[in-house]
Write a protein that binds this DNA or RNA. Structure first.
Length: 156
DNA sequence: GCCAACGTTGGC
DNA sequence: GCCAACGTTGGC
């Protein structure tokens, strides 16, 4: 099983929205590196941190689970959709998405600042300068440390 | 809102 | 294949 960190601006979709919806599709990723992770590596059963970017404060907001591995992002096929991309077709899809399910919502956002200050999280990708990748792999240790810092003792 | 860092595009 | 121009991300 792999662990991930996935970013989203909470003004677009937040952990509260996922808590309400229970599951959602994670569409609109338009970066090749992130796409490769979703298409090639991510599997149902993997765990992921939900990261609020461009937020006050930015940081990890909760935990989710991958419930469907990578499949073609069909929003890219819809000409009127903001995620439309004419280069992507159902015969040769360019972009991929996954489905995720709500697992836990942190009582408080774990701010990026705190992640940077924690020695056990040294080297974590999200804390690196200029890290813009919206789907990042995460070590099991880092995943557990973040849950512990957020006060999540046992995941359901 | 600013802007640094990064990714993508396209002329050559 | 180089690289300047442009667009986007995301912390602050």
């Amino acid at each position: 099983m792999e662990y991930w960190l996935m970013k989203c601006e909470p003004t677009a979709y937040s952990i509260a929205d996922l808590q309400r919806d229970k599951t959602t599709s994670w569409e609109g990723v338009r970066n090749y590196q992130a796409r490769n992770f979703m298409r090639n590596t991510m599997k149902a059963g993997d765990m992921a941190l939900f990261y609020h970017s461009n937020a006050e404060p930015s940081g990890v907001a909760g935990v989710m689970k991958i419930v469907k591995a990578g499949y073609p992002d069909h929003f890219a096929f819809k000409p009127d959709h903001k995620y439309f991309d004419a280069r992507s077709t159902s015969e040769k899809p360019l972009w991929y998405m996954v489905d995720v399910a709500f697992v836990a919502r942190f009582a408080e956002i774990l701010p990026l600042q705190q992640i940077k200050e924690e020695p056990r999280l040294k080297g974590i990708m999200v804390a690196q300068k200029g890290s813009r990748l919206s789907v990042q792999p995460l070590s099991e240790d880092h995943f557990k440390v973040i849950c512990e810092l957020a006060g999540v003792r046992k995941l359901p």
